[in-house]
C-alpha cells in the first residue's frame, strides 16, 4: 500500500488525521473512494412500446432509464416531476393501467405494452380536467412542482375509494371505505407538498369528488 509521506493510513481512502474520530472503529478503511472497474461496454438498450395519454410511443431506451426519465427526457412530457428520484415525494406520480405509481421507481423497459396517463393527458390549460380546475379554484398548489403528482394521485384516489381499497384510517378494514377528509389525507400522504397546500388540496378533491358523483 502506498503511503504519502508524513500523512498516514491508506492510499485508497480517507486519510484520518487528528483525534476527531471517537468512532475510529467506524472510520472507513477505504470508503470514500469508489473502486475503479474495467471500462463498460455500451450500455444495453431495448425497445419499448408504451401508450402514453392515448398515443402509442415506440422508444429505445437504456435499460437503466426510469419510466420518469423516459417521459421527461425522451417524450418531453415534463409535467411529471422529479422531486427526489427515490420514491420519497410522489412528484413523479403517473397512472399506469389505471393505477397510480411512482414513475421514478420503475424502469421504462418494464412497461412494454402498458398504458400511461400523465398530467398532460388529463387536461390542457384551455380544457382543464375537473380535478385540475378544482385545484385552481381552491388554490391547491403554490410553487406547482408537486402539483401534477398531487392531481394524478387525487384522480386515482377517488377511483381507489370507489373500488373499495382499504386504507390505514379505516375503522373496520373489512368494510367498504367511504369518502371522508381523513381518507383523502391518508391516501394522499404519498404526495409531499412543501409549500403546504394540503388543506386546500383536500378541499379541491372534495369538490371534484362531488362533481363526479353528481
Amino acid at each position: 500500500m502506498d503511503r504519502p509521506a508524513g500523512k498516514g493510513v491508506s492510499r485508497r481512502g480517507v486519510l484520518v488525521s487528528g483525534a476527531a474520530c471517537a468512532a475510529a472503529t467506524a472510520m472507513p478503511a477505504s470508503a470514500s473512494s469508489k473502486e475503479p472497474s474495467a471500462p463498460m461496454k455500451t450500455p444495453p438498450a431495448l425497445p419499448v412500446q408504451v401508450k402514453v395519454n392515448g398515443k402509442a410511443a415506440a422508444l429505445t431506451v437504456d435499460t437503466r432509464t426510469t419510466l420518469l426519465d423516459a417521459l421527461r427526457e425522451h417524450l418531453h412530457l415534463t409535467g411529471t416531476k422529479k422531486g427526489c428520484d427515490h420514491g420519497q415525494c410522489g412528484a413523479c406520480t403517473v397512472i399506469v393501467n389505471g393505477r397510480r405509481i411512482n414513475s421514478c421507481l420503475s424502469l421504462a423497459v418494464m412497461h412494454d405494452g402498458d398504458s400511461v396517463t400523465t398530467i398532460e393527458g388529463l387536461g390542457t390549460p384551455e380544457d382543464l380536467h375537473p380535478m385540475q380546475a378544482a385545484f385552481v379554484r381552491h388554490d391547491g398548489y403554490q410553487c406547482g412542482y408537486c402539483t401534477p403528482g398531487q392531481i394524478c394521485s387525487a384522480v386515482a384516489v377517488l377511483d381507489e375509494i370507489k373500488a373499495g381499497i382499504p386504507s390505514h384510517v379505516a375503522a373496520d378494514v373489512a368494510a367498504s371505505p367511504a369518502f371522508s377528509e381523513m381518507e383523502i389525507r391518508e391516501r394522499m400522504s404519498g404526495n409531499i407538498c412543501r409549500c403546504g397546500a394540503y388543506s386546500n388540496i383536500v378541499e379541491a378533491i372534495r369538490e371534484a369528488a362531488g362533481r363526479r358523483q353528481a
Binding site: G87, G90, T93, N102, S167, N191
Partner: peptide, 22 residues
C-alpha cells in the same frame, strides 16, 4: 380483510398508495 385483518392493517400502514400499487 375478513380473516387476516392484521395483514391488511400492516400493509396499509406502510409506504404510500403509489408504492403499494407496485
Amino acid at each position: 380483510r375478513r380473516d387476516y385483518a392484521v395483514l391488511t392493517r400492516a400493509i396499509v400502514a406502510g409506504a404510500s398508495g403509489q408504492l403499494r400499487n407496485k
